[in-house]
Structures are given as C-alpha cells and as structure tokens.
Design a protein around this nucleic acid. Sequence first.
DNA 1: CTGTTAGCGCATTCAT
DNA 2: ATGAATGCGCTAACAG
Lengths: 332, 332
Amino acid sequence: MNNMSPATKAATLHDVAKAAGVSLITASRALSNPGVVSEKTIAKVREAVDATGYIPNLLAGGLKSKRSLMVAGIVPALAVSQFLPTVQTLTGELAAAGYQLILGQTNYDADVEEQVLNTMIGRQPDGIVVTGLVQSQKARDRLRQSRIPVVETWDLSERPIDMLVGFSHIKVGGALGGYFLGKGWKHIGIASGDDHRARMRRDGFETTLGRKVPTALVPAPSSLELGRKALGELLEMDPKLQAVCCSSDQLAQGVLVEALARGLRVPQDLAICGFGNADFSAHTVPSISTVHVDGPEIGRLAARLIIDRCRGEAVSQPIVDVGFRLIERQTT
Amino acid sequence: MNNMSPATKAATLHDVAKAAGVSLITASRALSNPGVVSEKTIAKVREAVDATGYIPNLLAGGLKSKRSLMVAGIVPALAVSQFLPTVQTLTGELAAAGYQLILGQTNYDADVEEQVLNTMIGRQPDGIVVTGLVQSQKARDRLRQSRIPVVETWDLSERPIDMLVGFSHIKVGGALGGYFLGKGWKHIGIASGDDHRARMRRDGFETTLGRKVPTALVPAPSSLELGRKALGELLEMDPKLQAVCCSSDQLAQGVLVEALARGLRVPQDLAICGFGNADFSAHTVPSISTVHVDGPEIGRLAARLIIDRCRGEAVSQPIVDVGFRLIERQTT
DNA sequence: CTGTTAGCGCATTCAT
DNA sequence: ATGAATGCGCTAACAG
C-alpha cells in the first residue's frame, strides 16, 4: 500500500493513468469497461489504483454519463416502522446493483414533499421511490416531465406517475369489515392514525359495515402509548365495546396492554385487530390478529423496476398489486 | 406556469439565462448568491426559472464547487430501531441546512463496511456519519486521508477518526452492574445481542459484578420473540434466576412477556432491565426499567458538527459524550 | 452590479 | 486495443 501524506489531494483518474503509463481514457476503460482492454493494461491500471489510493469521483462520472447511480427514497418519516422493512430491502437491493439511496422525509406534509422531490430531481437520480402516492399535483407533473423512473409504493392507483408496487387500502378495510361482520360484533371501535392510507382503510371498513364507527384518532407516529389512550377514549364513547380495529400493530399492542390492565379478557371481553404484522405481533400474549403486507417484497420489486428501467429493459408490468392477508391470531 | 411537451430536455441554467436576458453567471448568482445581484435582475431570473421549470443540477454544481451538499450516513441495518431516532433527526437537521443523506448499510460486516465507505467517498460527500466506530483499519486510514469530516457515533473512543458523539458502553454496563449489586440479586442472567456494543456493555456489567454471568446470546436484530426464547434458555441454565439484564428494550419486553406467560410475577419473582428506552418501555404493564440514551440529540449534534465543519467554523469540541441515564421503572 | 474565461473529473464521440 | 479532443452543467476567479 501507499503512504501518502494526509494532506495530499485525492488522486484522480489522471494520476492513475500517469502512474500506469497509459492514457486517461484507457485507465477509465480498464476500470469501467474491462472487456475492451488487454489483460496486461488492466493489471497495470489496477496496480496504479492501489498505489494512488484512487477512488472514482462518481459526481463527475454521473455528470458526463447521465447515470448518477443514485436513487431517491422518500418516506413520511424514517421512524414510521411500517415502511422500514421496505426501505431496508430497497437499500440493500439497490446497493447490490451499485446504486445508493438518498433519503428524503416529508413529515406527511405535501408542501415539504414537493420541496423534497424538487431537490431530489436536482440530484439527477436514476430513479425515485416514494412511499405512498405523491400528493401534490405540481410534483406529479414535474416528476413526469423529468422522465426519471418513479415507483410509488404502499398504495394503489389507476394512474400512477409512472410505476407502482402496492395494494388497496380500501380493500384491506373492506376485508377487515367483512371479518368483523362475520364475527357478529356489534359494539365496534376504530383506533387509527390520521394519515391518508389509514383513512382509506377506515373508509373501506365503514363502507362494508354500512355505518359510521366510533373512532379514536391518534397522531403519527402511532405507538403503544397512543393505543392505550385510544382504548380509554373508545370505552368512554361506548362502554359496551366488543372489538377494536387498529391502524397499526403498535396501536393494537397498546389497546391490548390497556385492556389487560383494566382486567378485560382478550378476546372474550374485547377483540383486537391490528395492521402490518409487526415482528412482535405473533409473540405477544395473546398474539395479535393483524393484516400482513409483504414490506420487503415491495422494496425488492421497486428496486427491480428501477434497475430494469435503467438498463433499458422493457418493464412488462408497471403496476404490481402485492395484495395482503388477514392473519387470525388469539386477540380475535 | 409552463406547458412544455413532456419530451423536452430539462432546462439548464443556460436556458434560464437566455430567457431572462442575462448572462449565465448572473443567473447563477441570482439563485445561489442573491445578495450581490440587483432586485430587478433577481425578479427576471426567478420568472425565467418558473417559465422553464428549471431545477439546478446539483451534480454539476458539486463537481465545480467541491460542495456536494450530501452527507453519507452508515448504519448496520436500517431496521435496528436503536438508531432510528438518530438517523431521523440527522436527516431532518441536514435537510434543513440543505444537505441530503445518502444511506449505507453494513449488515454488521467489516468488509461490507469498508466497501460501502469506499463507494461513499466516491460520491464526494461533505461529511460522513457512522453509527458506531469504524471497524476496519484500512477504512479508517482512507477516511482520514480523504479529509472528509467524519462523525462516529453511539460509542466512545480516545482516537476517533475525526469527530465523535457518543457515550461509553463499558460505563453503561458498569452502572447496570452496580445497580444489580445494590439490589442484592444473586441469580442473574444476561440476554444480549452479539454485536460489538452489546458485548462491551456485558463486559462492563461482568467486571463490576466481579464474575461471569450466564448469557443467552441472540442474533441481530433483537426482538420480542428472541427475548422470550432467551428467558427460556436462561431459566434452563439457572432455574433460580432472579433478574435479567437485556441489551435492548425489545429483548426486555420479550423476557417480560415470557415471564408473565410462565406465571412469574415481575419484579417479585423476576426483575428485568432493558437498554435504549424505546417508546413503548414506559407504557407496558409493568413498565420496563431501562437505560436512556438521547438518540435524537446524537443525530442533532452530529449534523451540527458536520455543518459547522463545512462552513469552515472551528469545532471546539470534536468529542462529545452525551452520557446516559438509568431509568428505574416497575420491572425492577 | 455584471460579464468573460476557465475548468471541476470523467466518459462519450471520433480517430488511429 | 489505445488515444485526442470535446463537453456534461455549473461556479470560482478575475475583469470591467
């Protein structure tokens, strides 16, 4: 290895070429397109790279080649655990293909979202992955105009900006409504975050039940604490409460804890259902019934779509419905 | 607003300048350094920006100005909930200052970490924030040589690569050990992840107790499920188990659930202590004793250090110990 | 206050 | 298989 003074300027491809005794472009090709360069030259260049400690400047490469090898990922807030498996898988799959993820947070605010997306476009990402549908129409137009591959996720729409991997929250709500109907519960409550997707599930739920349902709304991010509070509110609205439908497993766990603390038997006195199939839900006592969504798969597919598009391959199915699955456990 | 055909090439600063009837550089200054440009010119340029739908190419700007306005953030895995508040705050604070975060995941693997850091350096970030200390010596050397501001976090070291915001895991373990000693518990067990920092806390714990402690090791990421399993293992090792020290609140919650499921009274039959002060820990029944670490503050300080350094301001305190705090709740 | 010139580091033409 | 020239889009330096 080398032993350059720490103040030395970073080596450029120019330095590598000089050290290897070849031209700039040959060094470039040896590294990024070795197929067209002789073995011997490649070896020399490799050696020069080690000697100089060269690290390619991806900014410069991206500027010229129009491929930044970056993908923007937009979430409402990182701590929304709902999306974590998706973002984690997305990041990993992209990294495996040589892409890095730039993170943006919208705080559930359409104006911030628009702002963030603008900045992201300026970074010339090779793709943009958004959790949820992009709210602002201005941002949608701009994204479409930018010709950057876009994947909206965790929701369904007839007219995505470009591509989409998600599922129908209306249908989730409907399925839950049907399940609650089948159980014959009359005194039902909802504990729900007040974000867009939770509202849609609630709409689907109430539509299937054919009536409005008493609801405790909680701010994001939902948590065990808020679930406990929500149950308190719901019991005040309806002391005969038999079952609660929650917009997340965190809330459901809170409702469960509060119910047990109040001496209610679950599910005999109070049934509880969550959403998201969090890692803990199968292992609480009693275990939490919920709706499973394959978060990692959403991330994987989103990465696949972006990468295929970047490679110029035709994307045969730009809208993927990954569906969902009711999981019946002990709380119902 | 405009109504360009969607196939139109993206507007460049050149187009804006032409539309505004000024030179390229004036347009540039009107946008990035308005102080030195007349009101009238700025207005004209602003208008031209709207008309053309111009979005600055930050790749090009960064190449020339040597300020990419990007910061690399490295985590073992995004789903390690321990770090989420830090990363979320970091991302937010950086965004507020005009910087975006590029995410990298190491999967607790030193080779992957080295690889990821190399790629990151190639993106010319204005700063790098790492959770934990960088393991690979090669990577440390390279980072130092790169002259990029680096903040290591969530740990303490006499010789960080550059800057550091964290606390001593040895001391956390020591404090927990002292607390357990004070309680007079004899039959003690540890449920611990097998990552570097958890090991250090365990070392500190055992050192203070003056003996080895039966340990159930669990793989990352720790979870409620693994906590339940761990208690099973610990009870097999020592049926008289009185107290368990866990490396995360997720594990602690699992131990709690399993203990209650086995009919043990907590804390009378079994005391439990966690680490991290997760959002749920204060609200379980019984609530979980734990060690509080200010994750958001770590993110905020890391952002501050990077930003100050980028602005050329002297950083008076490159090593910040944010400390920790034992929180005694009902499980002890 | 505004403009001209130059070049960041690399990859895509073309040529040899 | 290798090389020379050109420019990606922007901003830092210097002029005026």
